[in-house]
Design a protein around this nucleic acid. Structure first.
Lengths: 215, 215, 215, 215
DNA sequence: GATGAATGAGCGTTCATTCAT
DNA sequence: AATGAATGAACGCTCATTCAT
C-alpha cells in the first residue's frame, strides 16, 4: 500500500449524463474516440459505457459483442472513405487521369491523417486477430481499392505503360496503395523521424508514389 | 480480438523436460511466435509459459517484466536486420549505387517476409501502447535507416537529383522506407488481394520504389 | 505469518444462495472477521469472497479496492463507538465528572472487548501500512477522543489539578487513552498472562487509569 | 502499458557486495531493519537477501523459514530488553523502590522508542497470526515482566497497598505494563495527535503510570 | 428500451521455498 | 558454505458477458 493517492472509497453510480440523439450513435461515437486512444485491447465496454453515460449492458442492446461494435466502426470507416472517393470522382470529372490520380493520393493520406481512429481499425488491425470479419465488409473495402485501380489503369493507358502481364495494373494499384498505406501508418504509429517536417514528408511521399505508378 | 479459433497448438507445449538449450532462448522463441499471432496486448505471460513448458515465474528469472521481454525481442530484430545490411554492404562494395539500392530494397522485403514475427515487433507496434522504448534501441533502429539513407543519397547524387531543400534526401529516404514498409506490412497483415501473385507483387513494388527514388 | 492451522472454517462459505440480506453487508461482515484474524496484509479479496460465497469481482461492485473496504470497516467502527459515547453522555447527564469518567473508561474497555474486530481495525493498524486514511475519518476518530478529553478536563477542574502547561489536559487525556488502549490491546492480542483473571484485571486497569488522571 | 517509467529490462545479478562478519549476523541485521520498515508481511526473503548481498537460498542455511528468522529477531529483542533491565537493577541497587520503578518505566518507554523494530515484533504482533511461537521465547518474555513485577511488589509493600486478593500485585503489574505498552505503541504506530509534544506526552504518561501503581 | 447485479476467466506480478550442484 | 534455477500458489484487480427485472 504505502501512501498512494487513494481512489474514491465508494463505488458511486455514474451520473447518467444527458445524452442527445439515439443511444446507438452515441455508443459508436464514444467507441470510435476511445478506440484510437486506447487501441482495441485496451478499449473496454466499461469505458465506452462511462463515456456515453449509459449502462454497460445497454451497449449489448445494440451490439452483440465488443467485436461487433468494432466491426460497425470499420464499416463506417470504409463507407466514409467510399463517400470521399465518390466526391472526388465528381469533382475531377473531365480532368486528366494523372491529375485525378494525384488527387486521390492526396485525399487518401489526408483521410488517414484526419481520421486516425478509423484508419487504424480499417487497415492496421491484424485480420486474423479479429473474430471472423464479416465478408460483406471485406467486399466493401475491396470496392474502394477497385475505384483507385480504375484511375491507375487509365493513367497507364494514357502513358502507354499498359503492356505487361494481365495483372500488371492490379499489381501497380496494390503497390501504390501499399506506398500510401506505408506513409499513413508511419505517421499514425508515430514512427516518423522527428527531424522531418510532416507536410514536406507527405508531399515527398505523394510525388514518390506518382512516379512509381507512371514509370 | 479474442483468439479466433485457428489451429490451436502451433506452439505446442514443450513437454517440460524435453526442452533443448537454455530457458531464456526458449522463452524468446515462444514469445516471438506468440507475439505476432496475438499482438502485444493479447500476449500473456501465461501463454508464453505454457508454450515453453515452464512456470510463469520462471520467465521473470530472465525478464523483469512483459515489457522487458518484448523489448528484448525488438532488440534482437533490429540487430538481425543490421547484420543483414552489413553483409549486403560487403557484398555490394564497388557496385553502382542504383544496384546497391535495389539490393537493399529486395533484402528489406525479403527480411520482412522471412521474419514476420520480428518485422511486426520492430515496425508494426503502436509505440505509445508500450512502455517507453529504451533510447538505445531507438538509436539502433535509426542507424539502420541511416544506412539506407546513405545509399539513397549516393543515387540522388549520381542521377543529378541532388537539389531541393536540405532535408530532401531524408524525405526521399523515408518515403522509400514507407513504401517498402507498406509492401511488407500489407503482405504480413494478410491484406494482399488473393487474386494477386505474391512474387509478382513484390517485384512490382520494388520497381515502384526504385522509380520513386530515382524520379 | 502464514495462517497457522487453527480451526479452518469459522467463517464457513455461505453456500451461495442462502445468503440473507444484501451482499454489501455480507462482505463487510466477512471482511471484519477475516481482517482481525488475518491482519491487513493477510486479508485477501479471495478470502473474503470465499467466506461470503460470492465472486471476487462482485466485491468490487461495492468497494473500489481492498483499501476502500478496510476504510469502510474503520468508518463503521468509529461510528459505533461514537454512538456508544453519545448514549453514555445522555445516561450520565448530571452525574459528577469523576463518575462519568469512570463510566467512559469502563465503556471503552467493554467496547473493545466486545468488538475486537472493530477495535483492531480502528486502533491497532499501522497507519503507514495503509493507503492514506481519508481525512474525514481521522476527524471522526479525533472527535471521539475529544469527547473523552472534555470529561477529563472537567475532572481536573473539579479536583484542582487544572494547572500546568496549556496542553496539560490534552496530555492527560492521551495518557489515559493510552492506558485504556494498552489494556484492551493486551487482552485482544492474547498477551494477558493466563494466570490472571480477566475481569479482575480489567477492574484493576480501570482503577489504575482513574488514579492516573486524578493524581 | 501507456508510458510508464520503465524498470531495467534485464534481470541483472545482484553485485555481491562485500560483507563484514558472518552471514548469520548480517542476515539478522538486515532483516531487523527491513522488518520495521516493511512490516512482517511486506518483509520478503528476497529483500533481505538483496540487503545482505547474498543469495536467497543462503538465508535458508541459517534459518529454516521466514518465521524462524522472525522468531530469532524476537528472541534477540527480549534478550536486549532483559540485559537493559539487569543493568538497571545494578545501577539502582540500594535506591528506594519508587525511584527504581520510575527508572524502569522510563527505560521501558525509551527502549521501545529507540528500538521500534524490536518493539513491534516483540509486542505488537498478533500471537495467533504467527506460526507456533516457541515456548521458550514466551518464557523469556514472561521473565522480563516478572522483573518488573518484583519492583511493583516492593513499592506496594512500602506504601502499604499490599492488601487485596492474592493476585493484586500481578494485576497491578500487568496494568502498569499495559499502560506503558499503550504509550509506546501509540507513538510507534504513529497515532499520537500531532498537536502534542512527544516528550511532554511521555513525561505525562510516566507520571500517570506511577500514580496508578501507587494509588 | 434499459439497467444493476453478478460472474468466471484471466491478467502481470510476487513470494517462500526447494533442490541439484 | 553457498548458489542459481525453478516452481506453485497466491495476490489485487479488470474484463466481456449474462440475466432477471
Amino acid at each position: 500500500m504505502t501512501a498512494v493517492p487513494t481512489a474514491p472509497d465508494v463505488v458511486s453510480p455514474t451520473p447518467r449524463r444527458e445524452r442527445e440523439g439515439d443511444l446507438r450513435t452515441a455508443i459508436l461515437d464514444a467507441a470510435r474516440q476511445l478506440l484510437v486512444r486506447e487501441g482495441y485491447r485496451d478499449l473496454s465496454m466499461r469505458d465506452v459505457s462511462r463515456a456515453v453515460g449509459c449502462s454497460v449492458s445497454s451497449i449489448y442492446l445494440y451490439f452483440a459483442s465488443k467485436d461487433a461494435l468494432v466491426h460497425a466502426l470499420m464499416d463506417e470507416g470504409f463507407a466514409r472513405w467510399h463517400r470521399r472517393m465518390t466526391e472526388l470522382a465528381a469533382e475531377g470529372a473531365g480532368a486528366p487521369a494523372a491529375a485525378r490520380l494525384e488527387a486521390v493520393c492526396r485525399a487518401y493520406i489526408a483521410f488517414g491523417l484526419a481520421n486516425p481512429e478509423f484508419y487504424e481499425i480499417m487497415y492496421m488491425f491484424h485480420s486474423d486477430r479479429m473474430a471472423r470479419y464479416p465478408k460483406e465488409l471485406f467486399r466493401r473495402a475491396r470496392r474502394n481499392l477497385d475505384l483507385m485501380g480504375g484511375i491507375v489503369a487509365e493513367c497507364r493507358a494514357t502513358f502507354g505503360t499498359g503492356g505487361g502481364a494481365g495483372d500488371a495494373a492490379a499489381v501497380a494499384t496494390t503497390a501504390l496503395w501499399s506506398a500510401l498505406h506505408g506513409t499513413v501508418s508511419t505517421i499514425i504509429a508515430d514512427r516518423l523521424d522527428r527531424r522531418l517536417d510532416r507536410d514536406r514528408y507527405v508531399e515527398g511521399a505523394v510525388r514518390f508514389a506518382l512516379a512509381g505508378v507512371l514509370a
